[in-house]
Each structure stands twice: as C-alpha cells, then as structure tokens.
Design a protein around this nucleic acid. Structure first.
Lengths: 144, 144
DNA sequence: ATCCTAAATGCAAACAATTTGCATTTAAAT
DNA sequence: ATTTAAATGCAAATTGTTTGCATTTAGGAT
C-alpha cells in the first residue's frame, strides 16, 4: 500500500489530514524498521519541532482504528511501532543487533494446527516474533 | 520441577528464603494460569497482608535471574507472569475468555525454519502466543 | 474566498505502573 | 547469641501514557 492510499483511507474514515498527522504517519511509513516512541518523536520533531508527544499517542489510536498499526513487544519489555500495510497476516524476523524487521508469511504448519485442534482449542489469533541476527549483522559479528 | 526444587535453586544461588519471598513464589507456583501483577498481589496479601508491592517487583528480578519467570504480553498491552519450570522451550494456548494457559510443545515446522534459513537469518529465539477459546469456554459460549 | 463547526492539537496536569533511597528487619553463617 | 549482608516496607521519585481544556485548524457549507 503506498502512502497516498494510507491518506485516502484516513480521509475516507472521516479523519482530517492535519500537518502533524501527516508527518507522524509519514515518519512511520518511511522507517524501514519498527521504531520506539522515542524514535518516532525524534523523527517527527525533525520535520516539525512543535509536534507534541500526546499528538503521537492520539494518532496511535487513529492508526489502530484503521487497522494499520502493528505493535511489537520484545521480551525486554519495550514497545515498537510499525505500519502494517499487508493484506495478509504476517510476522517479523527481528534482528537483535540492528533492530531491522522483515515481514514473513504465515507460519503455523498444518500438523501444528492439528495438534491444537486435537486439544479442542478454538484458535482465533496468534502472535509470533522471531529474534536473531540478520545476514548483515551476522557478517559483522563474525568479523569481531 | 516441584516447589522444593525451586527453593533449593533459590538458596543455591545465594538468595535468602524469607517468609515474603516464599509466599510470593508459592502464589505463582500454585496458580494454574499466568497472572497479572494485581492478581499476584492479591494472592500474596491473602497469605500475608503486609507484603508490599515493591517486594513482588523485587522478586521478579530474582526469578528472572534464576531463569524461572515467563512474562506473557498479550496484544492488549497487559503483562502476565508465570513460572517456567519446563526443561524445554514451550508456548502457551491462552484462553481469551477464562485466561487459562496451557503449555504446548514447540512448534516451528522444519519447512518454516527452512524458509528462514533461506533468508540467511540466524534465528536465536522466538516467542509464540496463541489466543482462542479453550474447550470449556467454547462450550459455555455456545450455550448463549 | 469567507464562515462555521467538529475534530485535532499543545500544554500542563493527572494517572498508572514500576523503581528507588533509606531506615528497619531478618535469614543464616559464624 | 552475635553479626552482617540481604531483604523488606514505606514513601517518594521516575517513567510512560492519558486526559481536560483552551486554542487552532481542516474541510464542508455558504
């Protein structure tokens, strides 16, 4: 989904396109990896120093309402945000070193789902986060 | 791992077994599902009303140090705690209605791991949370 | 283009969750 | 029993997030 499509969706849902909102969403859109609130704030202040933290928080609600926001919660307790522009369900390969996140297609094998079914558990949704080292970082680490 | 084993591990690691600590860990040990901090506090206050919230927080550090604590972070932003007494890696089937969590064995299929390998991503750890309705709750919901 | 109104924003204050400093208590080694 | 480092309770501090309210602004109506 390209940026204009996002804006269109926003407007069609009755939200106004303010200067701040555009910058806030754009920051997330152009980031190649999930970012923390701190990073998000810096990126937006970069374009408009007057933008307030609470405005970002309020826009989180908007993005969630639009179903566009993905919140990633690593084990360390932090929260990172990224836009979810995919049609279908996906998960992330998250690099423990550089933080880059790459989306991958869904994952639960048939056999695995079968095991769950056998337990008569009605599976509605799942959340999978994969941590490791991406190719680049792995190479870097080998050098040391 | 039975409770005495947990206590033994605690002592062997140089921690003292205080009355409060015992109650705090016992509460978690005897709970059949992951619990919130609020629930944890209630369970401990039940046995000793004087126990302070900060003592629980400090004992979280201890349990993490011992590698016994599992933190579960549902999408709703809450945090639940449970003891991880298993030898091998496992995941949870978490009921969206009653909150009961059942551990299941590991899950990533060979094909799935192959896909990740092909991306030259060095997978270190992963986190999978499965949400849905357990058998009992499913039955209950059908009644309505 | 100007006017109008609901939505959005900035700011400061409120709030919730977690952590910390410090005086006191306690487990357990001596 | 004595001693001492570790653990606790309490209150205050800190951090992250939310809210109330006065002001501003986007975008439809005129």
């Amino acid at each position: 989904m390209d940026f204009n499509k996002v804006i269109e969706l926003l407007k069609n849902s009755g939200y106004k396109l303010t200067n701040q909102r555009k910058i806030i969403i754009e920051a997330l859109y152009h980031s190649d990896k999930p970012i923390s609130m701190e990073e998000w704030l810096l990126l937006t202040k970069d374009k408009n120093p007057g933008i307030n933290l609470s405005t970002i928080y309020r826009n989180i609600d908007v993005l969630e309402d639009l179903g566009l926001l993905e919140k990633i919660r690593p084990k360390d307790g932090s929260i990172k945000y990224t836009l979810n522009l995919m049609e279908h369900h996906s998960h992330f390969l998250i690099c423990k070193r550089c933080g880059k996140a790459e989306a991958i297609e869904c994952c639960l094998s048939k056999e695995f789902k079968k095991i769950i079914e056998d337990k008569e558990f009605d599976l509605i949704e799942h959340n999978l986060e994969l941590y490791g080292y991406c190719k680049e970082c792995h190479t870097e680490l080998d050098k040391k």
